[in-house]
Design a binder for these strands. Structure first.
Lengths: 218, 218
DNA sequence: AGCTATCTGTGACTGCGTTCACAATGTGAA
DNA sequence: TTCACATTGTGAACGCAGTCACAGATAGCT
């Protein structure tokens, strides 16, 4: 779930399209590694569990063209997506909350997405600070504003308890963060122009439990 | 992201509504604990970062009525949502993949959602099996079909590497699982009537990185 | 060189989730 | 008891993401 008000970035680059581009890139990297140099929209669509028209629309949105009867050039497409998604620069992300979940996040993303790096983590617990976890240094939460400003960090993952999430977000916004990956099972109130992507495992689990009880029929 | 084709469960119980009901319930439990007995749609909407009309439509979808000038009865509403979401029974969920992420999931949900329980976990690694993690026993992956069938488990969380996710899902579907919480950064091909809720942290992080670079203006 | 098959690019359309707006309701105050 | 008004319930309108369907393009085959 995504919330937070944003004007469209370009003509037709919606949040959904951005998400699918991320998926396409992952799939294309595998395709490229397997040696294929061209790919059709219907092949990419199958891999992404989408429709060919959807794929073509998404690529149209980033101004990437293929050629009839040959499809899209895989490596060029990867480069085009890289240019759009990450502006070809490494993005620094802060992590707040180094509990079970926070540590799993650091472990999960270590060496996974080269264009994104967790450069600083923060926690309230004095026992957790001043360590280095998966290449990310943990600082006391009180130094968050200072370090985020110093390093020009504009993105942050929130992995604190639900009761502290809003307060944490407020502080980060003031420090200059405009884009949140929110793992807390609450919705954050943020100013216009701030992006929030909720990764709400609680809601997801409730949904899964609900549909587990539905009658088999399609 | 949710995929997998499903006919509407009831008249207007969409996937989105189910998700919001889960959120409402969490908020209402806090409200109830704080002592309030009635709540207005606009109060619930503010807490959920939604609109009053949205809240009223969702409650209409589960046939719950309030009264003008007094709003909705908090405890009755919680009970109504419980009845819809979990059918008032405990749901058993299997976990496949007991790596960093899988263990974090078990820790995260231990004692969090009383109506959902991870009753069995599976892993390929012989070193990980036959332990009990956060109240959940870990079995070798080869016993998955047997145990899922034995316990009538219909929901599963997938926390295996991307390359094994599809294969894992296929086996689980054959064993009777109809509802997936997919943490692997791929889209699963599943038969009609099977539900998949993707918790794709990779895509989410890419989105957050993208919007971190967008100009401040709303 | 011409022809054909098949894929891309895109205007138009569709369906659906959300929001609007207002009639109906009934509560609490005087 | 009456009145006033804040809140609910919901038909209708809206907007947008996704799909359709076809014109345009081009590579390969004969």
């Amino acid at each position: 779930m995504v919330h937070g008000h944003l004007k469209p970035v370009s003509s037709r680059l919606t949040v959904q399209t951005i998400g699918r581009l991320s998926l396409y890139r992952r799939l294309l990297l595998e395709v490229s590694a397997s040696g294929a140099r061209q790919i059709y929209s219907h092949q990419l669509a199958t891999a992404a569990v989408a429709t060919p028209a959807q794929v073509r629309r998404d690529l149209m949105a980033i101004g990437f063209s293929g050629s009839p009867r040959r499809g899209y050039a895989v490596d060029d497409l990867i480069a085009a997506i890289n240019a759009v998604l990450a502006r070809n620069v490494e993005t620094s992300v802060a992590l707040v909350g180094v509990g079970n979940l926070g540590r799993a996040i650091l472990a999960y993303f270590a060496n996974r997405e080269p264009w994104v790096r967790f450069t600083a983590a923060f926690d309230r617990d004095p026992d957790k600070v001043n360590r280095i976890l998966h290449g990310c240094r943990v600082y006391p939460i009180d130094r968050a504003e200072e370090i985020i400003r110093r390093d020009g960090i504009r993105a942050a993952a929130i992995a604190v308890p639900a009761s502290e999430a809003q307060h944490t977000a407020d502080r980060l916004v003031l420090a200059g963060v405009r884009s949140f990956l929110n793992f807390a099972p609450v919705r954050l109130h943020v100013p216009t122009g701030t992006f929030v992507d909720d990764v709400d495992m609680t809601t997801a689990l409730d949904r899964v439990a609900f549909y587990a009880h539905q009658p088999q029929g399609s």
